Amino acid sequence: MRRFGLVFSVVAAFSLAAGCGGGESGGGEDTGGGGGEAETQAALVLDVGGLGDQSFNDSAYAGLQRANEDFGTGEEYLESSAPTDYVNNLTQLSDNGFSPIFAVGFLMTDALTEVAPQYPDTNFAIVDSVVEGQPNVASLVFREQEGSYLAGVAAGLMTQEETEFTNEDLVVGFLGGQESDLIAKFEAGYVAGVESVCSECEVLVQYAGTTPEAFNDPARGSEIARQQRGQGADIIYHAAGATGAGLFDVATEENFFAIGVDADQAQLVPDAPILTSVVKRVDNAVYDAIEQANNGEFPGGEVVEFGLKDGGLSLAPFGEYDDLVPQEVKDQIAEAEQGIIDGEIEVPDTPQ
């Protein structure tokens, strides 16, 4: 369901209960942010899964909220229930005078390529893709393979440890959402990380589907998690949006480790055995672009890239499982991170 209007409750932005819009706003009135009324009025077009995906949509919205608190730039958003909504949502926000408008997800590349030239005075940004040749579009991309490599190092080392969540099979899993070049970057980094510390390990790889719905299918996530668990996997990393909720359910039921994505998902699903998460700072990317727009410095026409070196990605703390992770494992992860930052480790961005 699409929603258009101010969001008056921010409590659920990172929970399963999220997704409630407020009343209609008439196009960008001040939402009570600390910066007061701003000339810049930002808005998001969320991808399938919407708010409450505990993933990139929620992270983008958190960046929008933070910008509103600091600059008073609004908290408007539209949810996309299907790819057919993209053009209409982008057009609706453009017609209502919002700028910058964020297309949250690579699936909106074609839609934004169509809409942006029709509104040359509106600033747009797209997350996880590049729109070529549009001076009013900023392309915000990440080196997802770098954070995924660290997740792979953690999985490859921890599957060799004796804990209540691991076995002796040396099998770990990867659960992807839609088959795509973007999610292949997560897979490539993860597999390379596992293999760098555990040459005997087997990495099971499976995707939820070939359409955008693959990011919003927890039942399919559960099915794949059970299959991989049945093949011996004791740690499964997902890059599947809301589909990953199914992994967390199965990990809880069958007592094995999951690795989250985009946000520190252990904080969002505290009852699940989530070892760590690859935190992708979509929130920072959105916030920075809004701040630049507010200062008259919007990076239109540019590709802005985020990786480990500039804090665009990180591995979340081990939280309640910290005592189960030996210091030598933590040290090896830290060494791998520094090696990537220093350019000593080159992480593949396509599966080998």
Rank of each mutant, 00 (worst) to 15 (best):
G221T: 13
L204Y: 00
T166N: 14
P299F: 02
I340R: 02
V205D: 07
P100H: 05
E337Q: 14
L268Y: 14
S129W: 01
A240R: 02
A17M: 06
V269P: 01
V278R: 01
F215R: 02
R226C: 11
G156V: 10
E162S: 11
K280F: 03
S196G: 13
T243I: 10
Q41Y: 08
L93N: 09
E254Q: 14
V282L: 04
Q228K: 08
D58F: 00
F165Q: 06
A42R: 04
L170W: 08
S222N: 01
Y237L: 00
D283P: 02
Q327I: 01
E161H: 06
Y237R: 01
Y86N: 00
D53V: 05
A18Y: 09
E200K: 05
V10K: 13
T109M: 11
P351N: 06
A188Q: 08
A125V: 04
G36F: 04
L140I: 12
Y287D: 04
F165D: 03
T350C: 07
G244D: 05
K309Q: 15
D217C: 05
L44R: 06
F14D: 09
T243V: 11
H238Q: 15
A188G: 13
Q41K: 15
Q206W: 02
A12D: 15
Q231T: 05
G221Y: 11
A251I: 01
E179R: 03
D95H: 09
L90H: 05
P218K: 04
C198V: 07
T350Q: 15
V115P: 07
G307I: 00
L93W: 01
D30G: 08
